[in-house]
Write a protein that binds this DNA or RNA. Structure first.
Lengths: 197, 197
DNA sequence: GGGTACATGTAATCAGTTACATGATTTA
DNA sequence: TAAATCATGTAACTGATTACATGTACCC
């Protein structure tokens, strides 16, 4: 059993939650919830599903006529592999990989003054504000902490673990907004950790 | 001119800094600096370089004999495209895409108690601590804010923009450590934004 | 019943990773 | 000079994105 990609586990995880689903339905769920943290286009679902079927982790039934729709569900082996992953070692941290950071890294001070840096920062601040607003909307529509709700958003069983992921998102966006705001207002050296203050 | 990948801009950016370099030398520079925020394997450099040469943004000279080494440098068009990118719009934010978040998202409370969640959190905390330590090492070896140094680390011209990227890394790791520590000590609901405190 | 939006699938392409092969230089 | 290490390149494969093609239902 070759090691699976994170995207594969997204599919396994969602299939466990829902019992069975079509690729299209999975796509909808991803867009609304975990896709904020690990998104991919729908076509990828077909590719991953095919792999998972080959490995015997997912069962696929297909309509004989018309749309030839697929319905996916976990096999016992699939359920197993998911459980292993959920409890297995998780000692890698993902890289940050943010294009805004990339741009600031390659800016050269002097030449064209600090204007480009500040503009970049202002744009990034706005973009992160928009993202933060999205998260806040999801939070609002998922409010009760002991849920008996079926509101949309990050739901299908929106318990503490799902809330935790969202909490990280919120904190991250707040961090990013603060960071870019400092730069927008006082230039890149405002955040230079080598300087006091 | 099809839009370039972020990795392509990493190469353009480094080539501008250094004038010209072999793929191997670029790899070394990436590992030590911007690779913390946007890493990729050396083989990718060959692929990107080939694309950039096709588009006329990079010049490649190759030794006639022996190792047949390549030396890459920017063309005027390449310098242009890089400058455009550096000052152009940057209103997209990158997804977080962290496997630790993915795992916590798919945890189910109840079944096996909260142990898996706490273990996950403890592992992630350690991993982020290691990463933070790395950043602190780089910071230490790049200390003077008005540099006349040629120490290793994030150097080759380690000015405020480069320090800013590093600052973000530091803050991010501190955030992650705090987040996972709360969960390790008090469970996922410790960070639930729907709850008071 | 014709248009619009939703639902579904495939193909082509591009990006990124792993694995391998080999040349050159240093050092024991 | 043999072993170890540094330097260099390519191939094969997996993962991810874009673009396209088409089917079905609803609504005016």
């Amino acid at each position: 059993m070759p090691t699976l990609s994170a995207s594969a586990y997204v599919i396994l995880g969602l299939l466990e939650q829902s019992g069975s689903a079509t690729p299209y339905a999975l796509d909808r769920e991803i867009q609304q919830s975990i896709g904020h943290f690990w998104g991919f286009p729908r076509s990828q679902i077909y590719a991953e599903a095919a792999r998972l079927v080959r490995h015997g982790l997912v069962r696929e039934e297909r309509e004989g006529a018309g749309r030839r729709r697929r319905t996916l569900s976990l096999t016992p082996a699939g359920r197993d592999v998911l459980a292993q992953w959920l409890t297995g070692p998780a000692d890698q941290v993902t890289e940050i990989r943010d294009e805004g950071l990339l741009r600031i890294f390659f800016q050269r001070v002097g030449e064209s003054g600090t204007e480009p840096v500040r503009q970049l920062a202002a744009q990034q601040r706005e973009a992160h504000r928009r993202k933060l607003a999205q998260y806040e909307t999801i939070l609002a529509s998922a409010t009760p902490a002991q849920p008996a709700t079926d509101a949309p958003g990050l739901d299908p069983g929106f318990g503490p673990p799902q809330a935790a992921a969202l909490a990280f998102g919120l904190r991250f966006e707040q961090l990013a907004i603060a960071f870019w705001t400092e730069i927008a207002e006082r230039g890149a050296s405002a955040v230079d950790p080598r300087l006091p203050e």
